[in-house]
Structure formats: C-alpha cells, structure tokens
Amino acid sequence: MRTLVIDCATENCSAALFEGEGEGDMLRLIDGRCETLGRGHAERLVPMIAELPDGGRADRIAVSTGPGSFTGIRVGLAAAKALALAWRADLVGFPTLALIAAQARAQSGAVPVGVANNAGHGEWFVQEFAADGLPRSDARSLPPPEAQAALTAEQVAGSKAEALVAARGFGQAWPLLPDARQFAALPQSLLLPDPHPAYGRRPDAAIPNKGTTGRRVDNSQRAG
C-alpha cells in the first residue's frame, strides 16, 4: 500500500510518498518534498505532489488537520479530498503538533515532548506529548507567559521552542516545523478518519452581525 502525506498547515509545505503499512520500519519513504514558503501553499502544493513518483498516486492519503494557518489547513484538506475522490483512495487526517512532537522524539529518543508553535496575533499553540508520542493535553492557543507555564516537558519542539526555553530558563529546544517526510515517526493511532480542520482558535475574519460593521484582524503573520 502507498500513502501520500500532505502537510501545509504552517510555514512549511511538504508532501511525501510512503510504501507499506503500519508505522516506523513498516513504512518506507519513497520520495518527498519540503519547502518553507510562508505563503503560496495553494500554488506550490499540487506541483509538489506531481513531482513525486507516479504523480504521488496512492491508496491512502494522510493530511494535516492543524492547528495552524487557516489558509494552509484548507489548502491541504481541499487537495487531499480531491485526490482521494479522483483516485478512490482512503482519506485520513493527523494532528500537526503531533507530527512535530514525533520529529523531536526521533532525534531525542522516547521522552516526553512539549510543542510550542506560532499561532499568530502574539499567541503560541502549545501541547504536551508523552514518551510514546500520544497527547497528554489538548492543543491550545495561549499568550507566551501562559504558554511557558503550560509546558513542563524538558524537551520542547516547534517554531517557538527556542523562545519558550529561553524564557522559562530550562530545557532543550528543537526548532522544528512539520515535515511530511517524517510521517513514519507519528503514532498511527493518532490518524483521524473523515478529517476536518482543527484551527486551534477563532477565525481571523467573521461575518458581521446585522447593524454592525464587523472587524478583520490582520493576518499578515499567518502561514499559507
């Protein structure tokens, strides 16, 4: 069985093709791409998939569901659903922060990992994972001081890992962004059937109520 993995929920845009079933040694990376774009995921993702062997065609598609960029999450899910329909492939989702934690565990060993990632508007997405890679808490978007208090693990991964470790004064930082090529390190028990976006916070833009003007929050720091 082949699995196409898509992740464009952060500044990174990545796609990878795996062969095999299960996880770890049972999944073999055939080929993959990972680029830090910031923006432009919609323009780059499909060509990136097309560069993979057989155009990335697979029996199963796994896509990141967030939390992360509103635009990036929607781009990834739309592409995954369209390809799953065209190829009659199975479709599953996976949590973005769990993949970051798995990447850190692949380097640091089987230890608890906290993840601190940019959430935009001055907040950080944070979540803790146990030594087996399973979540110990829910993903939350918090101001930096609250984020620092929320993570107690010695090892911290993510785009805000270095800032968090420096602020609290202890631990080791792994400044990582999610990379689809590292999908084999993710516990397969975290795969989600019928994936839906998990934005992690309220939308940046809202439809105004009748009689109000509404307000749009600047989204310039969001990926996608």
Results as ranks from 00 to 15, higher is better:
64 S>I: 00
160 K>F: 04
173 A>G: 06
21 E>G: 12
3 T>D: 05
26 M>W: 13
141 S>M: 03
43 E>W: 06
197 P>K: 10
179 D>N: 12
65 T>A: 03
153 A>Q: 12
181 R>H: 04
87 W>Y: 08
71 T>R: 04
168 R>Q: 05
82 A>T: 14
1 M>Q: 13
64 S>Y: 03
121 H>M: 15
109 G>L: 04
213 T>V: 15
69 S>Q: 07
138 D>Q: 13
11 E>C: 10
187 P>L: 04
41 H>M: 01
200 G>V: 10
169 G>F: 07
3 T>P: 05
24 G>L: 12
174 W>S: 02
115 V>D: 01
88 R>Y: 07
152 T>G: 08
207 I>A: 13
60 R>E: 14
132 D>G: 10
52 L>V: 08
77 L>P: 00
162 E>C: 04
146 E>V: 11
34 C>H: 15
220 S>V: 13
82 A>V: 14
195 P>W: 01
54 D>N: 09
110 A>V: 10
58 A>V: 08
168 R>T: 07
156 V>R: 01
62 A>P: 08
107 Q>Y: 12
72 G>K: 01
76 G>M: 03
182 Q>C: 14
151 L>Q: 00
208 P>D: 11
7 D>Y: 01
177 L>H: 12
118 N>I: 13
122 G>P: 05
31 D>K: 09
76 G>P: 02
167 A>S: 09
29 L>D: 08
195 P>Q: 01
197 P>Q: 13
131 A>R: 08
38 G>N: 07
100 I>S: 05
8 C>M: 07
59 D>V: 06
34 C>G: 12
161 A>G: 04
82 A>Q: 10
52 L>T: 08
98 A>L: 04
73 I>V: 14
87 W>M: 07
139 A>I: 08
209 N>P: 14
1 M>L: 13
161 A>C: 10
157 A>T: 10
90 D>C: 11
26 M>L: 15
147 A>F: 05
103 Q>Y: 08
23 E>D: 14
8 C>R: 02
133 G>N: 02
128 E>H: 03
188 Q>W: 12
76 G>A: 01
52 L>I: 11
216 R>Y: 11
203 P>F: 06
3 T>V: 11
139 A>S: 14
185 A>R: 05
122 G>F: 04
86 A>Y: 11
164 L>V: 02
36 T>H: 09
102 A>N: 02
13 C>H: 00
31 D>R: 09
63 V>N: 01
208 P>Y: 11
195 P>K: 00
